[in-house]
Amino acid sequence: MKKFKLKKIDNKKKTFLYIFMIVVIYAIVMALTSAGIINRYYNGILITVCINLILVVSLNLTTGYLGQLTLGHAGFMAIGAYAAAYFSKTFMTIPQPFSFIIALLIGGVMAMIAGLIIGVPALRLKGDYLAIITLGFGEVIKTILLSMAIIGGAKGYIGIPRVTTFTSAYVFVIITIVFVCLLIKSRHGRAIISISEDEIASEASGINIVKYKIMAFAFAAFFAGIAGGIYAHYMGIIEPKTFGFNKSIEILVMVVLGGMGSINGAVIATIAITILPEMLRSLSQYRTLMYAVTLIGVMLYKYDPRVQVLMCKAKMFCAKINPFKRKEAK
């Protein structure tokens, strides 16, 4: 009889590979920027990718891992954006990197507080009702921001210091992804996943499901708030209508296309969905149309049995060539 041996808790090889990738991607971007290949326009796209990545990975925590459909993620982003912008504009005298970091943290914390305020009553609800209440919440935030003259109302909040750089956005992307990955591979993450699998069994196994739902919600809101802050300090001007239902849906689509509860998938889907429309700029009037057709097409294909067989084969092939596979003890 073979002796059973358990996998290492954290795979060191994999960790080093990821760190290596993080550094290499950053180095490539920096090199291309200084060589002048990445101009202002491309830089903007890269920052947008970073902002979307933070939003998608954070939403993945609630919708992917916790399994609770949320349709108001952009609302948290809005709160973060306005709170961070308000701080930056009020305390212009604080020297730059500190002011920006404090602003982002304030944005994140404010969004987190909003997440708690909505989360506590909302989490009594199940399934679609939670989705609907978060939708309502997102709309409420948008309308309130529209009516507040002190932060510009419908005209937009202008004059926010434009201090977001690729580096700062990239750092927060890494922080978000690492946080979510490490959280998920811990007792807290297991508790969150168990809730999405079976709430009743999870509770019967001693998990305080209300606490964990609120925790996931709060963390997701926090990072959405940070993303909002980065966005505000990149654009220099923010308008409430940017953070409406359509933005929430855009984030959700990236989560779903990437495969819920998969960080790698989410990252790929986010990059693809953010960059593709930019490449098709010449066809800009058909952009929404193509987006819509792609959405429907992907969903239909995903559940086509022929495609599923193909996917299964692809997975088996990947497993075969997986360099991290443990050696079978024969």
Binding site: R187, H188, I193, I207
Partner: peptide, 26 residues
């Protein structure tokens, strides 16, 4: 918890016995 591993199914239930904080984890 159907999509979790057998081991994780058991470890979820040890949630209360083996406690460490979010800080310890991240």
């Amino acid at each position: 918890f159907k999509n979790c591993t057998v081991l994780d199914n058991v470890k979820v239930a040890m949630h209360d016995t083996y406690r460490y904080s979010v800080i310890d984890a991240v």
